[in-house]
Simulated assay, not measured.
Amino acid sequence: MTTDTQPTARLRTAPREDAPSLMLAAVCAAAVLNGINTIVVTYDGCGDEGQMHSIVLQGPADEDGTAPELAMPEMPCTSWSVPFRGDAFEVDTTFAQAIDDLGLEMLAQKHDGWENGDGAFGELTIDIAARKAVLEHSVRITETECFTHEWGG
C-alpha cells in the first residue's frame, strides 16, 4: 500500500543496520495514537518483482478474543528511509508508507533478493505493545534433477 506523498528528508542520519529498529519504533509510536494493537503485512515476490500485498490493522480484542480490523488512518508519520546505498535518514512520510518501508527494509536486510527468480512470500506481524516484529519468510525453490545416459563404445 503506497501513497503519492513524497517523503521529506530531515537532517538526522543513522547507520543502515539501525534502520529496522528506528523504523519499528516510529511505526509503533504512530500506531499507539490510533488504538492499533497489531499490524500484519503480507508480501509476495517472483520474476524479479516484489511488493507488499496487504496491510491489516487490528484493534484491541473483545471478550471472545476477536480483534476488529481498523481502517488505515490518513496521518503523517516521522520515520526513517534507506537509500539503495548509504545511511538511513529521518523523513516525514505517511503512516501507510512508513509501514511499507519498514517491511521492505527488514526484507532487504535479512533476505536480500527475495523478489528474484521464483521469489519468496511471507508475513510481517508487528505487536505494538511489545514493540516487536516477527518476520515469517518462505522461499520458493525450483528443483532440477539431472540425468546422464550414455550408449555405445
Results as ranks from 00 to 15, higher is better:
E150Q: 11
F84C: 04
R85Y: 07
D4I: 14
A130T: 04
P20Q: 05
T13M: 03
T148L: 07
W151N: 08
T13D: 02
A19L: 02
A133G: 11
V91Q: 13
L104C: 09
K110G: 12
R85S: 09
I99W: 00
H111G: 05
D44I: 08
V40K: 07
I39C: 09
P68Q: 04
S81H: 11
A108N: 09
A25D: 08
L135P: 02
V41F: 08
R85E: 14
M1Y: 11
L33S: 12
L124H: 00
C146F: 09
I128P: 01
A98H: 00
S21G: 12
A19F: 04
Q97D: 14
F121S: 04
A88N: 06
P68T: 03
V32P: 00
A88C: 05
S79F: 10
E123P: 01
D101S: 02
G50P: 02
A14V: 07
W80K: 07
V91H: 10
V27C: 01
T94F: 01
E74K: 14
G113R: 05
T94H: 02
D118P: 12
T8D: 06
P20M: 02
A120M: 12
A108T: 04
L11R: 13
A98Q: 01
H137M: 09
Y43C: 03
G117M: 13
R131A: 13
V82Y: 07
F147C: 04
N116F: 12
I126W: 00
A61C: 03
E145G: 06
Q97L: 06
T125D: 01
T42V: 08
R140Q: 09
M72R: 15
P73L: 11
R85M: 06
G47Y: 01
V32A: 04
D100L: 05
A71D: 15
C77N: 10
N34D: 10
E136N: 15
M1K: 15
L104V: 08
E105F: 03
E69A: 09
A67T: 03
A29Q: 02
D4E: 14
A26H: 03
V134K: 08
Q51F: 10
G152S: 07
G86Q: 06
E63L: 07
T93I: 09
L22T: 02
H111W: 05
L57M: 08
A61Y: 00
E105W: 02
P73S: 14
L24H: 02
S81N: 12
D64L: 05
C46A: 11
A120Y: 03
A29P: 00
L70H: 04
A88W: 09
M72F: 11
L104D: 07
N37K: 15
M72V: 13
G86F: 08
N37S: 12
I55R: 03
F89E: 11
R12Q: 11
A67G: 04
T148M: 04
E90F: 05
A61T: 04
I141H: 13
G50K: 01
V134P: 05
D101N: 02
M1T: 13
I99R: 00
I55Q: 06
T142I: 15
W151V: 10
G47T: 00
I39P: 04
A14K: 03
L135S: 10
I99C: 00
T142K: 14
W80Q: 08
T38S: 14
K132M: 13
G122L: 04
E69N: 12
A130E: 11
E105L: 02
